[in-house]
Simulated assay, not measured.
Amino acid sequence: MTQHSEGTPSAPESQEMTLIEHLLELRSRLLKMVLSVVVCFAAIYPFANELYLWLSEPLRALLPVGQTMIATDVTSPFFAPLKLALVVSVFAAIPIILYQLWRFVAPGLYRHEKRLAFPLLFSSVLLFYAGAAFAYYVVFPLVFGFFTAIGPEGIVELPDISSYLNFVLKMFFAFGVAFEIPIATVLLVLTGATTPDSLAAKRPYVVVACFVIGMLLTPPDIISQTLLAVPMWILFEIGILFSRLARREIHQDAPEEPTGE
């Protein structure tokens, strides 16, 4: 048994575990993640049709009187709500999934890394949800209003429920990931890949990149592109601010040994 001198921190638990024990721990965490998604799906699926009606409300509210959405495939009325319920279940289980990941990696982290890692995980969940909410409440009404207004006269708009679902899920993912920019910025600085001053000096290139990404991830209209690019730039500035604060926090802490759990 390894002897430790007085005052020397003991080795982290992650270093004492064998490879088999690590794999068993990983399997346990993965099973809990899957179980959390299954439980959320079981609770959400009975309301899948109502959930789809709520999701499609931004478009249906703009359709002329007498026009509605249609299903062009025989199985769409079943599979579209099913797919939506599964995706929402994953979204709802994200806090549990990230917590299980945190419990798996936490034993090998230093104390100052733990103090930063958990807030980063928590913030990433909130930012992803904020991005999806921004897409639903701000972007969708403007984008769908634009599309329904520019159509040629005499054209009856009958959106397909599966095509609509694929479109909004893509938008949710694009805005959810875009809102993670502050987290990515902080991680780049903490890992030593760059510095806040270096990022600030590249601001003009970042602004151009934001509009290019907005063009690639959104429909081909200036409204949705701008609504994605401008928040990305603002979030980049927020990321620089928080990366300075996080870096200062790291420099104030003396190096420590991993604590384990």
Rank of each mutant, 00 (worst) to 15 (best):
F104E: 07
F122I: 13
D160N: 12
G131C: 09
V156T: 14
P107M: 03
A149E: 12
F118R: 07
L127Q: 07
S162C: 02
Y136I: 09
G145L: 04
I150C: 02
L121H: 00
F118Q: 01
F104R: 04
P159Y: 05
A132H: 01
A133M: 09
G131E: 10
Y137M: 06
S163P: 00
F144Q: 07
P159T: 05
A133P: 00
L142M: 13
I161Y: 05
K114L: 15
S162V: 12
P107A: 03
F118E: 03
L120H: 04
R115A: 14
V143N: 08
L142N: 13
L127M: 12
A117H: 07
S123N: 11
A132F: 09
F140M: 11
H112W: 08
R111L: 14
F104H: 05
S124W: 01
V156R: 13
F146A: 05
A149V: 04
F147H: 12
V139H: 01
L120C: 07
V143T: 14
G151H: 10
V143F: 09
A117S: 14
G154L: 06
A135Y: 15
R103F: 03
S123F: 13
A130P: 02
A135S: 15
S124R: 00
F147S: 14
K114F: 03
S124H: 02
Y137C: 04
L116F: 10
I155K: 05
G131F: 09
F144L: 08
Y110G: 10
I161E: 08
H112K: 08
L126C: 12
S124T: 01
L109Q: 14
S162G: 13
A117P: 05
G154E: 06
Y136E: 06
F140R: 03
W102T: 06
A132K: 06
S163F: 06
S162L: 13
Y129V: 15
L116A: 13
E157S: 15
A106E: 15
V143D: 04
K114R: 14
V139P: 01
I150R: 04
Y136S: 04
P107D: 03
R111P: 15
L120D: 05
L109F: 07
A135C: 15
P119V: 11
F128P: 03
K114V: 04
F140Q: 06
P119H: 10
A106D: 12
P119T: 09
A135R: 07
L120W: 05
V143G: 06
Y129D: 08
P159N: 01
V139Q: 02
V139N: 03
A106T: 11
Y136W: 10
A135K: 08
P119G: 11
G154Q: 04
S162I: 12
L127F: 14
F128G: 04
P141N: 00
G151A: 15
V125E: 10
S124C: 02
A130L: 11
F144W: 09
L142V: 13
F118C: 02
P119M: 11
F122V: 15
W102S: 07
E157N: 14
R103P: 00
S123R: 02
A117G: 09
A149W: 03
P119R: 10
Y110N: 12
D160H: 00
G131N: 10
